[in-house]
Design a binder for these strands. Structure first.
Length: 480
RNA sequence: GCACGGAUGGCAGAGUAGCUAUGCAAGGGAUUGCAGAUCCCUGGACCCGGGUGCAAAUCCCGGUCCGUGCUCCA
């Protein structure tokens, strides 16, 4: 089955055909580091992490670029507020980004270009746009002139020039800058007093918001590349502006073959965003939630769907992840190696096929998760049974490592999974004699039908973290 | 207002024409002093109104509701 992806520009799922056989270039808009990363950033990072993982597993050599827009109005605002250099603000938040994304098991991109390291390329591109009459110099900067390429308007959002003219309503009057038309957008902003700036043919200033991505994608991926991604909130104006800039500068279209956009995180049904003030930073969330539980929660819906972030979905993910981890870690303990991709167990092959079909259908992580859940359930029941065949269990371990680990990234490293299980074992042996003693007392109580005493002992054991289970073959117990 | 998405059982969330989605939760049974674990079984949904079809959750038209974008945003 071939891989199909939903392309925002054509509004349909299209078979992914790379420009160069066997290779994929992908650019995903990263963050503007003016504050610590929030859950929405994590969603974006994880979505494209999984896309890249899947492309690689499919056999593509992937060049994945994700940028930092490390100079902009908000970064300047924060730096002025704190009285520190703007780069200090940016660096601090970039560090936070890497710290939390590492915890969330996000594989690093091949490169993380920054605006401040791309200034010469940006200046060159702006110069090019001016020479080609797509941009004009004004009193307060350089602007892209929309009317020079009206056919490119609305490529991603379906809006026409007229619609925006109307829809902008009262805001249109506030243009107030050197723009000729309110829909023109800044390529270069002249420096204001006390702001960081770079020298350019148009005086000191800094890049406008959109030009950096055109310049960086060109620099790192070339004049045409396969995939451009980002959140749906960037559709307009950011990504449409990029289309204007890149295509008008390079003189061909399309520059980007496929546009992929991830959905937003909602809180109580509304988009979580910094400006709404209803956001959780990732590090705040990680104080209460295991990073892999958070990752699990964020891939529970396909990447294009909005995700409603609330305690119920976290608890749900937590219990699913708990099942996965406890089965995996126990299986690891009793298993023998097997080889990835070659499974004797028929149900594993069926699940593989379903999972692969799901991922090939626009990276449907939900379908993949369903198969993980099914396999975990089978494994748990196998571990519970008397038939704990190490080779069979080994196949489950390998399968989980291939798909839950490699593809979805929701499995901890072997080492920590083993430790998880060994901690349970050592806790078990630590308290074993005490537990046995209490259980004997309980047995005596039970024989004399002294249920209140028996239950009291069970409660006591429960407080020690021991779960008691009476079965047909006597009483068993395990550590929570 | 305009644009783009979405609306499926208690919850999450698949499914684009006919065949059990799945997981969790719930109910019933087995087991059990009770509880838990396990096993077996079960119920339950396709926003509304039209249309096309032998057949529609699935296609078409109209409507309603929700989200996002139109302003800095992943």
């Amino acid at each position: 089955m071939t891989l199909r992806v939903y392309d925002t520009r054509s509004r349909s799922k299209r078979v992914l055909t790379p420009l160069e056989e066997g290779k994929i270039g992908i650019y995903a808009c990263g963050i503007t580091p003016y504050s610590p990363s929030h859950i929405g950033h994590a969603r974006q990072a994880i979505a494209f992490d999984i896309i890249v993982r899947w492309l690689r597993k499919t056999g593509y050599e992937v060049n994945y670029i994700s940028n930092f827009t490390d100079i902009d109005d908000k970064i300047i605002a924060v730096s002025q507020e704190e009285g520190v250099d703007f780069l200090e603000v940016a660096n601090r938040n970039i560090e936070d980004y890497f710290t939390v994304m590492d915890k969330l098991n996000v594989i690093r991109a091949n490169s993380y270009p920054r605006v401040t390291e791309t200034i010469p390329e940006i200046i060159e591109m702006i110069g090019d746009l001016i020479r080609k009459n797509h941009a004009y110099v004004s009193a307060d900067g350089v602007y892209f002139e929309i009317d020079t390429a009206p056919e490119k308007y609305g490529q991603l959002t379906g809006q026409t020039l007229e619609m925006v003219r109307k829809g902008a309503g009262g805001r249109v009057a506030e243009t107030g800058s050197g723009k000729r038309d309110h829909r023109d957008f800044a390529l270069w902003k002249s420096a204001k007093e006390g702001e960081p700036s770079w020298d350019s043919p148009w005086g000191h200033g800094r890049p406008g918001w959109h030009i950096e991505c055109s310049a960086m994608s060109l620099k790192h991926l070339g004049e045409r590349f396969d995939i451009h991604g980002g959140g749906t909130d960037l559709l307009f104006p950011h990504h449409e502006a990029e289309i204007f800039q890149s295509e008008c500068c390079l003189g061909h279209d399309p520059v980007v073959q496929y546009w992929l956009h991830n959905g937003m995180i909602n809180v109580d049904g509304e988009k979580m965003s910094k400006s709404e003030g209803n956001f959780w930073t990732v590090s705040e969330a990680l104080q209460n939630v295991d990073p892999l539980v958070l990752r699990y929660a964020l891939i529970n819906a396909p990447y294009r769907q909005p995700v409603d972030f609330n305690t119920v979905m976290i608890e749900d993910s937590s219990s699913h992840y708990g099942r996965l981890l406890s089965s995996y870690s126990e299986a690891l303990h009793v298993s023998k190696e097997s080889h990835i991709g070659q499974y004797e167990i028929e149900s594993l092959n069926i699940s593989s096929e379903r999972l692969i079909n799901g991922m090939n259908d626009d990276f449907n992580t939900r379908k993949a998760l369903v198969e993980i859940q099914v396999v975990v359930k089978e494994l748990a029941s196998l571990l519970q049974s008397n038939d704990r065949d190490p080779i069979r269990i080994g196949e489950y371990v390998t399968w989980l490592e291939e798909f839950a680990g490699g593809v979805l990234g929701i499995l901890p490293p072997r080492k920590s999974a083993s430790e998880f299980y060994e901690n349970k074992l050592s806790r078990r042996s630590e308290i074993e004699s005490e537990v046995e003693r209490l259980l004997e007392m309980r047995d005596v109580a039970r024989e004399s039908k002294d249920w209140s005493k028996s239950d009291k002992i069970r409660d006591e054991l429960h407080e020690m973290g021991v779960v008691v289970e009476d079965g047909p073959e006597g009483t068993r117990w395990h550590v929570l």
